[in-house]
């Protein structure tokens, strides 16, 4: 069984019960320097492994900056 989530507005098919911690590998991106918001709320890295995604979830994957 698969479902579709959206990462930065692009559809991403993935298995049911996909966890947020699985998403970097699905995106073929290193998890380092990556932040996720799910449905407009940021999810702290410590919660990724327990954070189950649902069909239709809107994710934003981004990095932060600190320059000025």
């Amino acid at each position: 069984m698969t479902m579709t989530i959206y990462v930065n507005q692009q559809p991403l098919p993935c298995p049911m019960n996909t966890l947020l911690a699985d998403v970097p590998a699905l995106l073929q991106l290193p998890a380092q320097h990556l932040a996720f918001a799910v449905n407009h709320t940021i999810v702290h890295r410590q919660q990724w492994a327990d954070f189950a995604l649902n069909h239709g979830d809107q994710l934003d994957a981004f990095t932060l900056v600190a320059g000025g």
């Binding site: 320097h33 932040a35 702290h44 890295r45 981004f62 990095t63 932060l64 600190a66 320059g67 000025g68």
Partner: peptide, 19 residues
């Protein structure tokens, strides 16, 4: 500190990267 704790700050600043 909560933002920093995301460990998502790209290793860049305007000395090494353009802006």
């Amino acid at each position: 500190g909560c933002l920093y704790g995301l460990n998502a700050i790209a290793p860049q600043h305007c000395l090494s990267h353009g802006v």
